[in-house]
Design a protein around this nucleic acid. Structure first.
Lengths: 105, 105
DNA sequence: TTAATAAGATACCTTTTGGTATCATGTCAA
DNA sequence: TTGACATGATACCAAAAGGTATCTTATTAA
């Protein structure tokens, strides 16, 4: 199975979670991501490396730039892990159903 | 909204995720949880504190013992966060549906 | 070709984290 | 009431995490 620890680890940091949301629908270079945070490009690059280690983003070179792309499939192991707690699913059933209905419209 | 950082932080450690699975369906004292790990009771207690800070478990005293109980509702903010990535939901739609159907049987 | 630009690689620092050891406190049972 | 037991609290330690600064490398554009 996919190693889940790097995924949970990547999601543990709020900056990294923000980056993921930021990449939703838009690929970005390191510099572009860094513009949105009050930290150095090097620090942002480290976060991107952690995200990449967890498979949550993929990186492709384009000239001298690196484009970072969200990989939503990588969230699957988190869902798998959560699904162990069936009581959770019972409790969240309604919310889930409406979310799914909304997505399938 | 519920503070989600303590939840993601709590889930980032493999020992803590194991503890949560362990508490699924069974309340346990600190000593009982600690029996299952090769670390001191104090270390396990620290993990339980982190889990409690995230609201993932609740603790109630019973005589001189403390019973730790899983609180599956606390997973909700994680699902909420994941739901932002609608592409993820698209990809996982089938799996989700079967999981839900299985739970509602 | 050369200067500016985007990113990679290190070295270094501080704080947080995961762990142990030790001692104190509260409760149960004989 | 006294000893054993379950837990709480604190101090301490090593490693990991999050960050900066700095230097190097590879492209691009003039």
């Amino acid at each position: 199975m996919t190693e889940q620890q790097p995924i949970f680890r990547a999601l543990a940091d709020p900056t990294r979670r923000d980056i993921l949301k930021m990449l939703h629908g838009t690929d970005m270079t390191i510099a572009q991501v860094a513009e949105n945070f009050e930290m150095t490009r090097a620090a942002v690059k480290k976060h991107l490396t952690v995200l990449s280690d967890g498979g949550l983003i993929t990186v492709r070179a384009q000239g001298r730039e690196k484009l970072n792309t969200l990989n939503p499939n990588a969230f699957a192991p988190v869902l798998d892990w959560l699904s162990f707690f069936d009581a959770f699913w019972d409790d969240r059933l309604d919310a889930l159903k409406s979310a799914i209905e909304k997505d399938t419209q």
